[in-house]
Amino acid sequence: MSCTKTIRVLIAKPGLDGHDRGAKVIARALRDSGMEVIYTGLRQTPEQIVEAAIQEDVDVIGLSILSGAHNFLFPRVIELLKEKNAQDILVIGGGVIPDEDIPGLKAAGIAEVFTPGTPTSKIIDFIKSHVK
């Protein structure tokens, strides 16, 4: 019997942004660290992301945006999770996100924001230490 839980992560790109290099690199890195990664592809609405996260019963949602729409789309995901009573899912974000936006996103419920240059190992460690 396995003693540690397999961590499940949904990697999603909300909005219209098509830059998925970072999302894909992170998906692979998480896989290589032993996690199950559900990759949902481009142009996901917050509604789709939350519903997929619930059906997949993931521990973590990783959102990636480079288009600048994070201030609208990240909090919307959190809002919907709350509506569905699924706020126990850890939500992290990444992409081109100005420092000054980060406090607001965290206040909205994003657990951590990873900006360009973050090593994947740091994200892996964060997930491992924050998933109960």
Binding site: A27, R28, L30, R31, D32, S33, G34, M35, E36, V37, I38, Y39, T40, G41, A52, E56
Partner: peptide, 8 residues
Amino acid sequence: GAILGDRI
């Protein structure tokens, strides 16, 4: 680990 990509 695994990448579960059928959902796409």
